[in-house]
Design a protein around this nucleic acid. Structure first.
Lengths: 196, 196
DNA sequence: GGTAATTGCATACGGCGCGTATGTCAATTA
DNA sequence: TAATTGACATACGCGCCGTATGCAATTACC
């Protein structure tokens, strides 16, 4: 048997990532004790340092996992829509909704950038931007929207989306704020439609 | 004499804020040792805890100071422009430029949100959003732009601005990226102009 | 198939940074 | 001038992190 060995290792990595993800997503990166959440996974810091180098490395692994999930969700939303424009709008709304989930908000929008720097520079963790950029590119080719650089458009819109999400999430009246934010967001997107 | 006493205290506070601002803006909040930068100011951690409660409190004070400076700059830019629309665009460009300054970027956009939470919730540190919202409100009243909630618009635009700035700042080809980002940003803003 | 090298992970150790409790001296107040 | 307040320093303990080391199980090699 050569498998069990590899499997045990993969399982160890998965357990560490899982435990860290839970800790980072709830109490936050800075307040998560490596001793605590490794113990929770039935391991010690030794395993962590062996596999991920340091706490940051583990955060990177967690982020990569979450980003992959987010990208898959965005692609599905976009693909399921009847028209491309509707897919575009739905994709952005979905992004805002994801940014409202506490785990994503905390790890991807607060602690991640603070610890690892700008998300633009994260390796293998920009699936979301790429997904939106692709949609914009297609829309532009089909003449549905005005002339705009796809990556620039994607980044600006995603930044606005996450800003909206942050605003909603921290509001003391989420329902009211959500209406304002989404309304404003739609106006912003409408402004990108090509004049008939 | 009752003054010297008060002056000494104010000077102590200013020295602490200044030293912390330098440290936070360069090596970052997490890596700034309280012992180090208080010593640099000729003081100890005792003074820091006395005046600001803890490290977070000092960060708040630093942020408040920076935000006031930023707000003043934005108001001036907006007021100096020949027309309101030009003032609006200039204001946003100025915001992007400010977000490119390393100290502002680090403290206001990275460490600040990570340590204190969403900027929306910061007390007395949202002058920038208010400034942009005021401009939008005036533009709307004069019929220059489409119907959009001023605060929502301000937040979305500011989020997009800072996203653009982050993108530029971390690019390995800032000149090229800047052209793309500003170009895209102008397209976004043009979309908000009221149809003739 | 037995020995050597590698690998996965735990344990042990040292240091740094933080928060609190306590001390001290000058300035205010009466 | 005596009492009190307030500004700031000093002292102490603890938790967390990174590294060095140890050990057992697996793999590689002849």
């Amino acid at each position: 048997m050569v498998r069990p060995r590899k499997e045990m290792i993969a399982e160890t990595r998965a357990k560490l990532i899982g435990a860290a993800r839970r800790a980072f997503g709830t109490i936050g990166y800075a307040d998560s004790s490596m001793d605590d959440f490794t113990a929770e996974a039935g391991l010690t810091r030794g395993a962590l340092y062996h596999h991920f180098g340091d706490k940051k490395g583990l955060l990177q692994a967690v982020i990569q996992e979450i980003d992959a999930e987010m990208t898959a969700r965005l692609n599905k939303v976009s693909a399921d829509a009847p028209t491309r424009w509707q897919g575009f709008v739905a994709e952005n709304v979905a992004y805002v909704e994801m940014a409202l989930e506490p785990e994503i908000q905390r790890i991807m929008f607060r602690d991640g950038p603070a610890v690892l720097g700008d998300p633009s520079m994260w390796p293998n963790a920009n699936g979301c931007i790429a997904a939106v950029a692709r949609t914009i590119s297609a829309l532009k080719a089909e003449g549905f929207i005005v002339d705009i650089d796809p990556e620039a458009g994607a980044r600006l819109i995603i930044a606005a989306s996450s800003g909206a999400a942050q605003w909603i999430a921290n509001s003391d009246n989420p329902a009211e704020t959500s209406k304002k934010a989404v309304g404003g967001f739609r106006v912003l997107l409408e402004g990108l439609r090509a004049p008939k």
